[in-house]
């Protein structure tokens, strides 16, 4: 018995994050080989999932460490997408270096410059908002729902700001149409999606390394696990919180840009609407669990994409919502456990 338990704990420890995700991806692709599932939708779902994952990892870290549902997370994404638009179509174009159609992609190298710049700007913004709003609320020790409420105000104000500066019309990064890659099994991949997946993987690995290999990451995981215990063990909570905002905002900003590339347009409401899949992924994976969020993102992304085979595609958010509700009924703490 004890050996059995030993083995099972060892497997769980060894298997935990990376392997589970690999397993889910393999399962998803295997599902694509089922005769009644279109492989193209599965592949598309994986790309969508990589964007959901970036948003959800940040959201779940904020959720776990700062202990509130950041309703403004979607609007951080919107902000990222529009700041990048400003850099690409405003600043860089003004210098006279307008270009699009880099290699096989629809966008040009300005977007590559814009991504890190935008991430830095949005991260600074997030830290500023924390200093002005959230830090005070933390010091007052208000109810977590009040903090979420404040983030709702931030969400509205941010969207208003986006609409003031960039209008509420649909916009786009400068783009050149490009041939999609044709693969067997009727899979069509726009080259941009490969870029999206690449950026998402790089960032996910970076966050993974940060969380597992650095002292700050260890402190963050400890705080997410048990904030009080972390505090009494001498972890500097203020720094942990600052880094959480930086990571969350960077991931959100990049996710926003990638979403704009993925759907080939920007609208101010894009981030608010994306909250549903984001929260669904977070709940699925267990609140405060970044690996869970990653796995949850894959489940939500692939399932909602595959569902379009039978259901009207505009119901995708409703499908994500339904999966989340089903999860809450069966396992409220999520697939991998988290703060219940």
């Amino acid at each position: 018995m004890s050996t059995l338990q030993n083995i099972s704990t060892r497997i769980r420890r060894k298997w935990a994050p990376g392997h589970t995700i690999v397993l889910i991806v393999i399962l998803a692709v295997a599902a694509g080989f089922l005769p009644f599932v279109k492989m193209g939708l599965v592949v598309n779902g994986v790309f969508l999932a990589s964007i959901i994952a970036l948003g959800a990892i940040g959201l779940t870290l904020i959720y776990g460490i700062l202990d509130f549902a950041n309703v403004a997370h979607g609007d951080y994404m919107t902000m990222g997408a529009y700041v990048a638009l400003f850099i690409v179509a405003g600043v860089i174009a003004a210098i006279g270096a307008e270009s699009q159609g880099l290699g096989p992609f629809t966008f040009g190298y300005p977007l590559l410059i814009a991504i890190p710049l935008t991430a830095a700007i949005v991260a600074l913004g997030a830290i500023a908002l924390d200093a002005v709003i959230y830090r005070r609320l933390r010091n007052w020790r208000v109810n977590t729902a009040v903090v979420s409420m404040a983030s709702l105000g931030v969400a509205i104000a941010l969207r208003g700001l986006v609409q003031i500066i960039w209008s509420s019309d649909t916009q786009n990064y400068p783009r050149e149409s490009r041939q999609v890659f044709h693969l067997p099994m009727d899979v069509r991949i726009p080259p941009d999606n490969i870029f999206i997946a690449l950026v998402a993987v790089i960032l996910a690995v970076a966050v993974y390394l940060l969380l597992t290999r650095t002292k700050m990451g260890k402190a963050m995981r400890a705080t997410a696990d048990n904030p009080d215990l972390a505090l009494v063990s001498g972890i500097e909570t203020a720094r942990v919180i600052r880094w959480t905002w930086v990571i969350g905002a960077v991931l959100a900003a990049v996710a926003g840009i990638l979403l704009a590339v993925f759907q080939a347009h920007l609208v101010p409401i894009m981030g608010w609407k994306f909250l549903i899949p984001l929260f669904a992924a977070v709940v699925l994976g267990g609140i405060g669990n970044p690996y869970g969020a990653l796995a949850g993102a894959f489940i939500i992304g692939v399932t909602s994409e595959v569902s379009t085979q039978w259901i009207n595609p505009s119901y995708k958010p409703a499908v994500a919502f339904a999966i989340m509700i089903a999860m809450l009924l069966v396992r409220p703490r999520g697939l991998f456990g988290g703060q219940g």
């Binding site: 549903i276 009207n312 958010p317």
Partner: peptide, 27 residues
């Protein structure tokens, strides 16, 4: 479904139901 769980699950669920209702009447 949600009121047994932590507070903010209700927020997420109401957000989802609002969008679902809207999509239903739209589609």
């Amino acid at each position: 479904v949600t009121l047994r769980l932590r507070d903010d699950y209700l927020a997420i669920a109401t957000l989802g139901i609002a969008e679902t209702v809207r999509l239903f009447f739209l589609n």
